[in-house]
């Protein structure tokens, strides 16, 4: 048998040797636990005594658990406001930076830095100080406008907004992706549009936007999935409580509380599965909507 035949043949033995870490990891840390938590979501389980079958009880309980419903509402609000704000900033700055300015690398690095640090406890603590009653924001409002502002962090009407702002502050990562996408748009497209008499504004709406829709779509899906799972900022800014008055009780924070403070493992599993379902649904709807507004390749 010749060498070429050897290469074209399936190499199952050696391939699965290389694949083995992932296969074990997938079975033990992803698929197994997912099925496990699906089973647990139909049980009562406190980690210390054996799980007892509870049928749909956990899921039924969700509808009448006011704190759960609050956490769902808070999280939906957070996603609804933080994702468009963050992507809006990202796109706006990327468009400005893409106009052949000097110092692009410098600006890109500066704007990217917050999204690298933003998920850390240190930044959340910093944010808490900045928006506290005697924080720097209120110092400015007082000394410049004489306005005695409330404590943003401890006021249930504003606490979530500070978290939305913290998310928007981290617009750098999607901005970098937008910039990469903008660079992919060939100059001839603009030249052709200009020859057809398209003004810059028209070029933006008929060339830039359509060709950028796949990137907008990608960023939208990834940021939405990420926003649903945010945990650290809510935990740190609310001191682990989701307060004030549950106004920053993120979905994942309530999940954490049920699982690791109350040891309601069955109930927490149901909460987790509903999150998977919500994220799955949001992703599916995005993909279904994509064919109406996302332009791929030549069909443009």
């Amino acid at each position: 048998m010749s060498k070429t035949q050897n290469i074209s043949k399936k190499q199952n033995g050696v391939a699965f040797l290389f694949l083995s870490p992932w296969i074990v990891g997938f079975l033990v840390f992803t698929l197994g636990p997912m099925l496990g938590s699906l089973y647990l979501s139909f049980t009562d389980y406190d980690l210390f005594s054996a799980p007892t079958w509870a049928g749909l009880e956990n899921y039924a309980k969700l509808g009448s658990d006011p704190r759960y419903l609050t956490s769902l509402k808070v999280t939906l609000n957070y996603v609804l406001f933080s994702v468009p704000l963050k992507l809006g900033f990202a796109l706006f700055i990327a468009l400005i930076l893409n106009r052949g300015l000097r110092g692009l690398g410098f600006y890109r690095s500066v704007f990217y830095l917050p999204s690298l640090l933003g998920g850390s406890v240190a930044v959340a603590l910093m944010w808490r100080q900045i928006f506290s009653y005697d924080g720097i924001i209120n110092q400015f409002l007082w000394s410049w406008f004489g306005y005695d502002a409330p404590s943003w962090i401890t006021n249930p009407d504003y606490a979530l907004s500070t978290l939305v702002l913290l998310a928007a502050w981290q617009f750098g990562a999607p901005m970098v992706i937008f910039l990469a996408g903008l660079k992919q748009i060939p100059q001839d497209m603009y030249d052709a549009a200009a020859i057809d008499g398209a003004r810059p504004v028209q070029q933006f709406f008929y060339v830039t936007v359509p060709l950028l829709t796949p990137i907008i779509f990608f960023n939208f899906v990834m940021q939405t999935i990420g926003a649903f799972q945010a945990f650290t900022p809510s935990y740190i800014i609310s001191d682990g409580t989701g307060g004030p008055a549950d106004s920053t009780l993120f979905y994942t924070l309530y999940l954490y509380e049920q699982a690791f403070t109350n040891f309601e493992m069955g109930y927490a599993s149901a909460i987790a599965w509903v999150l998977v379902a919500i994220i799955g649904l949001a992703t599916m709807v995005s993909f279904l909507s994509a064919k109406y507004w996302v332009h791929y390749g030549d069909e443009g």
Binding site: Q11, N12, A15, F18, W22, P33, S37, A259, T283
Partner: peptide, 30 residues
């Protein structure tokens, strides 16, 4: 490398990128 079930396995792996960690968090802890 070329191996059996390459396409479905690749699709499965790509799917796990989007999967929220919370789905497996509790049984992992257990």
């Amino acid at each position: 490398l070329d191996f059996s079930f390459k396409k479905p396995l690749f699709a499965l792996m790509m799917m796990t990128i989007m999967l929220p960690m919370h789905a497996s968090l509790i049984p992992q802890y257990i």
